[in-house]
Design a protein around this nucleic acid. Sequence first.
DNA 1: TGGGATTTGTTCGTATGTATC
DNA 2: TGATACATACGAACAAATCCC
Lengths: 77, 77
Amino acid sequence: MPIRHDRATPVYRQLANLLRKQIEAGELTAGLPVPSEGQLTGEHGISRDSVRKAMAVLREEGLIVTVQGKGSFVAER
Amino acid sequence: MPIRHDRATPVYRQLANLLRKQIEAGELTAGLPVPSEGQLTGEHGISRDSVRKAMAVLREEGLIVTVQGKGSFVAER
DNA sequence: TGGGATTTGTTCGTATGTATC
DNA sequence: TGATACATACGAACAAATCCC
């Protein structure tokens, strides 16, 4: 499901929802990296700003852990 | 002409324009290296980010070729 | 064999400006 | 007014390739 510029749900929330589903479905595995900011901006055609906001949401939910210079990783649970 | 932080033309575009002129004027010769990222950041007082964006522009224009660990070189034509 | 220096490649961190809704 | 979104710009850390001694 592509991300839309629709006024109902912000782009960054759509991405956060998408990634959350992939984590819960096990498509993104604990300990392994989530696609990088660059990857996600390219894949979805959105700005880095929106990607980072989405990651911030997941980080606050405890679903990912982020390390400067390395990437974001699916949290162990 | 020094590079300015002016909002009309981004820093990285200014540098791309500058280097393009030097290539077209033959001041930077085919097969020889373009100044390194470190050189360009120092000379112009701009960030590596901006330098790399400028190089990306010239690379897409086919004016330079870049090799990791070696540098960027003026393309043969 | 090894290590150090240089250079580009990749990643996240932060801030600012602009535009839109 | 505030939230959203994009672009620009600077920093910082880490990774990989190349070169030389």
